[in-house]
Structure formats: C-alpha cells, structure tokens
C-alpha cells in the first residue's frame, strides 16, 4: 500500500514530528511504500540543520535525515511555510539575499502542489497534527 504523511505539529513544541517518524518507520518495516512526507506549518523547523538540542535529548532533525537517507524518502518541506519561518536552503537563501541557509538535502523545499499530488497518488494520507 502507498502511504503519504502530512506533518503539521510544531517541531519542538509537540510530539507530532516524532509520532510521524515512528509511523513512517513502521510503514516501511511493514513492507509498504512511502510516496512522500510533507512538512507543513510549524513542523518545517524540523528541517533546520542548525537545530542543536542537548546531547542527551531527542534530535528530531537527525532522525528524519537518517530515515530519509536510508530509504531514499521524498521528504518535502512546504516552501511558503518554510521561507516565512526562516527555513531555507542555499538556493533560496541566495534568491532572498540572506547571509546563510539552514536546510539541505534530503529535505527538499517545494510547493503545496506536492501535497495535492501525494493525496492523489497515495492510498492513504495520514496527518500528524499540531
């Protein structure tokens, strides 16, 4: 079965991003397919490479990065939600004349159309809310 995941909860003030992580991992372990993971709203902060939690606490960015790289996942961060919140990759930082960038592959910045497409393609679209 083909799944897509929509994450909407805050990256650091809700359980949402981690619940979605565990679910995604379980989908893959069950032999199903993940078409796309879409980070929206406050969850886009999970894409920040500058997040530096204490060593003995959860590093949600690293978890997603590792999972995405291991399974070649398409993890998309909503570009409008991200730019507004100061989450951008090198290309967007250049475009907006910012001195630095804070996200990179495997996180991809793209539009809400990717969510619509995921809704069409996938058998299940599962939301992890705020």
């Amino acid at each position: 079965m083909i799944f897509s995941i929509l994450i909407y909860g805050s990256a650091h003030n809700s359980q949402s991003v981690h619940s979605a992580y565990r679910f995604t991992d379980s989908v893959l372990r069950s032999g199903h397919q993940i078409h796309r993971v879409f980070f929206y709203g406050e969850s886009v902060h999970a894409a920040s490479i500058l997040s530096a939690p204490p060593r003995d606490e959860l590093n949600i960015h690293q978890l997603w990065k590792d999972l995405a790289e291991t399974h070649q996942l398409d993890i998309v961060v909503c570009i409008a939600a991200a730019l507004k919140r100061g989450v951008m990759n090198e290309a967007e930082a250049r475009r907006h004349e910012k001195a630095s960038f804070n996200t990179q592959a495997p996180f991809e910045l793209s539009g809400l159309g990717q969510l619509s497409e995921a809704a069409i393609i996938s058998d299940r679209l599962v939301t992890f809310g705020a």
Binding site: G41, L112, L115
Partner: peptide, 19 residues
C-alpha cells in the same frame, strides 16, 4: 493563529490542481 490560512492554502492549491 495560522491554522485557517494554512488550511485555506491547501484548499486553493488542491482546487487549482483540479481536485
């Protein structure tokens, strides 16, 4: 808060997609 705006953006995009 941003919920309504962000949800409406999904609606408008999905509709523009022909859904």
């Amino acid at each position: 808060d941003a919920y309504a705006k962000e949800a409406l953006d999904i609606a408008l995009t999905a509709a523009a997609f022909g859904l």
